[in-house]
Design a protein around this nucleic acid. Structure first.
Lengths: 249, 249
DNA sequence: CGACGCATTGATACGTCTCAATGGAAGTGG
DNA sequence: CCACTTCCATTGAGACGTATCAATGCGTCG
């Protein structure tokens, strides 16, 4: 096992699955047990596409992957996967994928074959619980997206999107206030259920309020707190408020 | 085991978990192993509330349960659970619930303690996979709701809601064309991310088009096909796929 | 039977989508 | 290395749809 692998595993959600029971990160027998394949996906390329048979579940090691669902006609984006997070688990066994996973930027992914995983579960009973916890967390993310979108205005959605991104990056030890959005405005729009033009207008508005600094894909978050407040804004429409006064100083 | 229990288990998603390996429904040792408690929840009452510690996961046996998420300020409805379906799995272990589960109509629920479940998994390795499959299916439902809402008009959402309901009821052998909506228009509105007035208008419009017959909470679906068509309508981006590509139900 | 809550219907305001044009960044070829 | 090309992001003006506010009708339950 290379040094880099240990480092990557430090923040990975699968750590307790890969190194179950008495095994620790220092004795990486767990990783060997899971027979992990580390796959490289170049930007714009797919890990798998809807309709393809997949025999494993996947964990993102680095980069960013967008998961799209084309079953409804349009390519709806259901998730932007960040390092240390599980890609959507669809079946629990080898079966046809309903989703397409495309790398927004060049990414590395751990692929864990289901058969191998279940064998490990039989040997280390704690692995089952740890994995279910991960899947549940992934589902919580989808619900959060759902509530972020329903009945919320455009500005609240974009603010919610950014503050959610900040929180997830921070919890993984990644730079959370100054980063590069790999995905296009169009992708963000399809993720949030709006038009790319509206996304643009919201970025401009957030910048005008001094919450972020936007230069193309580079994003600097100036006030996470204010961003979070905006994302939770009540039914009172946000765009008409003279917010300039509040941000004096 | 009473006769009724066997009958209820026939269509239950947990069947393969409760009766793993060589055990069958005729030898209900599996159910005993899982130490299932069958709980009755009167209409309007809660199985558990956000913040409460829950030690089990739950499966709906009969009735209808709405799951709400109050973490965003408003009581957003994330799911209407139908018989044979898993209530949202949040943790994979005993932990505080983020959701509140309230019976829309008087319901019966199977509660499976996590500790017991994991013991069964250790004994019957297939149980793990079956359960993960269930959780994944539950997650797919949330994603479906997500795509049903994003970027869709009010009429499409209501049509999608109804056709989704039909499909789920039919797959469980329940009356799927003439049923009673236990939940209020307000609940449907909070589920679909719109106002109750708009939901009303959509029901009226669907009735005007001859797709359904609506009398208060009683719903008769006159054309499931047309309903499904409406739910997917207004997709501008090349949805003119040949019928061969699409699968019939 | 009466009262309350829920569902329906109507008129108006507001926000986002749409269509269209400009601006700027990234990548290509000379 | 610079000019060119192309794609993406930004900005603007108008149309459309849903939220909103308000009133009435009807089912449910005391």
């Amino acid at each position: 096992m290379r040094e880099t692998r240990r480092g990557d595993c430090e923040w990975c959600g699968l750590r307790r699955v890969c190194f179950p029971g008495r095994l620790t990160a220092e004795s990486p027998v767990g990783a060997a047990l899971l027979n992990i394949r580390c796959v490289r996906i170049a930007r714009g390329h797919a890990l798998y596409r809807a309709g393809e048979r997949i025999e494993a579940f996947h964990m993102l090691r680095s980069g960013c992957i967008k998961e799209t669902d084309g079953s409804d006609g349009r390519e709806s984006i259901v998730n932007f996967c960040l390092p240390g997070e599980l890609l959507t688990v669809q079946n629990g066994a080898s079966a046809k994928s309903q989703l397409t996973s495309v790398a927004v930027e060049t990414s590395f992914v751990c692929a864990v074959p289901w058969r191998v995983f279940y064998r490990v579960c039989a040997q280390f009973p704690t692995a089952t619980g740890e994995f279910i916890k991960l899947v549940a967390k992934s589902g919580a993310g989808t619900r959060e997206l759902l509530t972020m979108i329903r009945g919320r205005g455009a500005l609240e959605r974009v603010a919610g999107f950014l503050s959610n991104l900040c929180a997830r990056m921070q919890s993984r030890g990644l730079p959370a206030r100054d980063f590069r959005l790999g995905m296009s405005r169009e992708d963000i729009a399809r993720y949030l259920g709006m038009r790319s033009e509206t996304v643009s207008r919201c970025f401009t508005e957030l910048a005008r309020r001094g919450v972020v600094r936007v230069r193309a894909k580079r994003i600097q978050v100036l006030s996470v707190q204010e961003m979070r407040r905006l994302s939770l804004a009540e039914v009172v429409s946000g765009l008409d408020l003279p917010a300039a006064e509040r941000e004096a100083g």
